[in-house]
Design a binder for these strands. Sequence first.
DNA 1: GCCAGGATGTTA
DNA 2: AACATCCTGGCG
Length: 188
Amino acid sequence: MPELDQGFFTRDPVSCASELIGCHFRWRDCTVRIVETEAYDSRDDPACHTWFRPSARAFVEAQQAGDAYVYLNYGVHWLFNLLVKGPRRSGFVLLRAIEPLLGIERMRARRPGVPDHQLGAGPGKLTRALGIDGSTHGVTFLGSHECGITLGKSTTPICGTRIGISQATHLPWRFGDPNSPALSRKFT
DNA sequence: GCCAGGATGTTA
DNA sequence: AACATCCTGGCG
């Protein structure tokens, strides 16, 4: 399976978010299947961090396409994004849900008592299950001994509005595998 | 099953 | 003050 290269992330964030569904995501001792994502667009999307965080604008400027943008949400949960830098549009893809493929014992150990299909069924849950935290901020996911993303089986993703935001709530920039048991919420 | 509420810290 | 969340407990 081909490893995603920087070319994949030098397009528009919505295309990247859609096409990441079904891809295999490898981080240290775990490999998972991406089943839910959201796109955020730095240009004309008021929900994107670049809209209200100068530090996010600086990150887009300084970092490379395919780098991890990780931040703490509600003071509790780490949320994982991939930086997209297209010729016209930049932004982020938020990972919202994953299914375990390899290393499921490690994921269970990090989330004791949680059923397997729930281990990564949410953006805060998946970072906990994978052991991703603020120290992953800025790491490139273009492929290394430590991490990488490869193309997986492509199912046609379903699409809906994004979760948990108060701005630009109408944009249909949430994508998911319709057959996955690990989606964070129903699509609307 | 649904809903309300609280934890918690970083940014601005 | 807001926030790209999650878990618990109350109620049926």
